[in-house]
Design a protein around this nucleic acid. Structure first.
Lengths: 126, 126
DNA sequence: ATGATAGTGATAATCATTATCATTATTAAG
DNA sequence: CTTAATAATGATAATGATTATCACTATCAT
């Protein structure tokens, strides 16, 4: 990888993200890792989230307030619930999403992110 | 509409957004409307973009830096180009996107936004 | 071992977005 | 046509997430 040296902090951030199924913000990860790395700096978390994202190891989910991150993106289809404001994972047939693109599109697609808006099953019950 | 009074500024913001096919930020709209409303405040633009969005008249496209807005969303499928950083519209078969949802999903979907990442046709040519 | 360079922690700086507030515009009712 | 209620505005201060900076440390190829 182009000019990247390994770092315990970066590894820990990636492992943290891969070991959970919610979509934390930089700050959430920061407080979480403070237990293992008391000297950890918030700036380091932000820095490495950017690096990990550009390496394609995690994805960024733009939220209303802060950026959220996801380290388990075999599927990255999300629903933001307008009631409880949570961002939940959705199972989606990715094949069909790709097929929705016109055949003559001549750009280059490396990934995609499908975001649904509405109510999560929990809130839909009222 | 619940407790909304009409305002020239809000109308102008909506018309501006509907009359263009790029995806401007609040600031871009602000400078654009300054010509017609010299006294316009940036806060007014931000305020009304929020109102218009919650009324479902425009959509918000989270960008890398600032929020972008779109007033022509018969389709709201976008590609963010990793090279030129532009956000361009894509023609997409929305039917197939909806079909990608599992039949037994019991939440409620009101809208969706499909974002592709990669290179726009222009940048793909190098 | 060592030199080159990427990474870190601390903190200041940035800057998009919000909140506040006195004033003005809009609207419905008398 | 007043008037009272309240939403909207413009100006600006405040907020808060993200970045930049910098002195120092860790990593790694040679």
């Amino acid at each position: 990888m182009a000019g990247l040296k390994s770092s315990k902090q970066r590894d820990a951030i990636l492992r943290n993200l891969q070991g959970r199924y919610d979509h934390p913000t930089a700050e959430t990860i920061y407080f979480d890792l403070k237990k293992d790395f008391p000297a950890l700096s918030l700036a380091t978390v932000y820095r490495n989230l950017k690096v990990l994202e550009s390496e394609g190891l995690i994805i960024r989910i733009p939220g209303n307030d802060a950026e959220h991150y996801d380290g388990n993106f075999h599927n990255h289809y999300h629903l933001t619930c307008r009631h409880c404001k949570n961002i939940i994972d959705l199972e989606v047939n990715g094949e069909e999403v790709i097929n929705a693109l016109p055949a003559d599109f001549d750009g280059e697609i490396t990934s995609h992110s499908l975001m649904f808006f509405g109510l999560c099953p929990e809130c839909a019950k009222h």
